[in-house]
Nucleic acid binder design. Structure first.
Lengths: 358, 358
DNA sequence: CTGAAAGCGCTTACAG
DNA sequence: CTGAAAGCGCTTACAG
């Protein structure tokens, strides 16, 4: 094998034109049975395979999706979404070029530029960091999909029903008899207001559930980690750990904690482990995402996000838009997906015999 | 913005030829100061950006690496290697197309075919599943790099010094006074013999360390999970869990366990948690990889693999080979990287007061 | 220092 | 049912 065969060579071997080769390759257009056979043989003989680069240039389509990921590590949420998108895209003949931006606006900008230079057919943001970059992507007149965090109203959106998911979590705890339930969220104050969608929904669900059951909302039981995905130092893990240490040492500690992602839940469990307390005997924990949940001890009760489905939906919408099955209408699409409580082993009835503090 | 500007348009606006535009774009070749200025202006005015697809077709190079990943979930090892490769490649002007094959030979084959059709400049396997697919990739006469698992001797290799890493782990435990140390490995028996590299090295290190200290090798203390990355059901987690349950209930349980990856270590910790034992007070645990280690309770002592460096090395070698800085010699390159024990909180001195069984 | 022109490997009207 | 030919947007000898 020295050089790769081209269509022209296949045509020569088969004694037909390249147009005919193209016709049998994509089987469209009329071709005589005999010609098909000759071309097939020639393809086999020459070990021909299509040059997708040439096809892309000619068709002005690359069959490639550009996927901008906030950061695949340490949060497996992004990995699972990426996997869902990749699998769906593959099955439709598309490849996906991904770009991890580590939560940086500038890197995200560079990602969009790279994708534009490479003429991807659509850009997916999971999740967008900066609205300006989404706008910039929109300028290219290719489909732009925002996953989970709708920073720009006029771009398409794959959303998650955080409110219902979080409600199930808190209701579950209340149903178990818990009345002092702490809430640990992620970085809402430090986010620009347009980006708070996810965080605000989860906190609202928590407050509404307490209120519905006539339980007080105690500000001392609510905390947010400072950093929104300053991932390098795994700070949100450390912060949820520290806040839990504080809670456990307080005069009137909670009997349950609702943590809005599994990573932070890991930090909570570490604190509890060090305090030599048992879960759920001494305190119940509910996480969110269902990423690390199955790897923790005890197995974490958590609100599962349909990560695969989210990724697949993003890819599906993008491809439908590319292929014109959907009108690129004035209205952006909003696709809602649903979170679901998975009860495992980190939640149990509140202890009535003794208080945690005693 | 209706259509994207081409070089021809830029040339027209600047009043020069496309050759000149290309020269200033890549700044090579002589161009008068004045022409440079006019072209720069024209590029700004037309919002021109290079069409990488066209450049790829012309240059017969795509500035794209194809990265075949065994599976990014649930093992973050692959994610970190991918990140390392992506970052290095980016910095050199390359993009990376990744393809998760979920441990399937057929999917891996499809990945190679996709990459060949898309004319990637090199193919990375992290880690290769089937030697035949590596051979197939090799047929294309592009650089082929195998990460961690050298299935095909004549393809390039990024290796890990598993033996030394595992030795440090076991020596650490022995130094702490442990004499009954269990070993939990992954799927070695079920792997084809050419693929056993990693597993065999780790087991040998374990045995050699025991022997060196005149400790007996007890087959009852050694177990392998059945499945090699049958990931969907997270079975290796479940199997390490079950084996640990057995160990703990045995007549003469170990005082320490060396588990050859952090995922399985998570299963071990779950079993210990359920048995209401404390780590490291009752039993010490050492993992491998440093993936989940920081998320577990207690923080896991583990052998850290330089995952980023592994990915970056793979990308660097590939690019050097592509750009001809290295001769594509008869001899495949073998780059060795080093694992390192990270002592955290899951290991401690053996208990001398009471036996675990008592 | 600069431009005209060929050509990378396809696809796709168009003509027959 | 089939082929000749144009053209996607670049890069790169080559000639001047």
């Amino acid at each position: 094998l020295k050089r790769r065969a081209t269509m022209k060579e296949v045509a020569q071997v088969a004694g037909v034109s390249t147009a005919t080769v193209a016709r049998v390759l994509h089987n469209n257009g009329y071709v005589s049975e005999e010609a098909v056979q000759r071309v097939r043989d020639a393809i086999g003989k020459t070990e021909y395979n299509l040059n997708v680069v040439a096809r892309s240039l000619r068709q002005q389509r690359t069959y490639t999706l550009g996927h901008i990921l906030q950061s695949m590590a340490p949060n497996p949420f992004f990995v699972e979404v990426a996997l869902g998108a990749e699998e769906y895209a593959r099955q439709k003949g598309y490849s996906v070029l991904s770009y991890n931006v580590q939560g940086s606006k500038d890197t995200e900008r560079a990602a969009v530029e790279t994708f534009i230079n490479r003429r991807v057919d659509a850009i997916l943001f999971t999740t967008p960091v900066d609205a300006a970059n989404v706008e910039f992507a929109l300028n290219s007149r290719i489909p732009v999909i925002q996953v989970e965090r709708p920073l720009v109203p006029r771009a398409h959106q794959i959303l998650v029903d955080n409110y219902t998911g979080a409600t199930e979590a808190v209701e579950h705890l209340i149903g178990l008899g818990h009345r002092r339930i702490a809430f640990i969220g992620q970085g809402a104050q430090t986010l620009p207001s347009t980006a708070r969608y996810v965080e605000v929904e989860r906190l609202s669900a928590y407050k509404d559930a307490l209120t519905r059951h006539e339980l007080p909302i105690d500000p001392g039981l609510i905390a947010y980690t400072q950093h929104y995905y300053k991932l390098e130092d795994r700070s949100s893990l450390g912060e949820s750990y520290r806040f839990t240490c504080q809670l456990l040492q307080s005069a009137n500690p909670p009997t349950a904690i609702f943590v809005t992602n599994d990573i932070m839940a890991a930090g909570v469990l570490q604190s509890i482990y060090e305090a030599n307390l048992r879960v759920p005997d001494d305190i119940s924990i509910v996480g969110f995402d269902d990423t690390y949940a199955q790897f923790l001890a005890p197995l974490l009760t958590t609100v599962r996000l349909p990560m695969h489905e989210i990724g697949a939906s993003a890819a599906r919408l993008a491809i439908e838009l590319i292929e014109g099955q959907q009108e690129e209408a004035a209205e952006p699409q909003k696709i809602m997906t649903h979170a679901e409580l998975i009860v495992r082993k980190s939640t149990g009835p509140v202890r009535t015999d003794v208080g945690l503090g005693s």
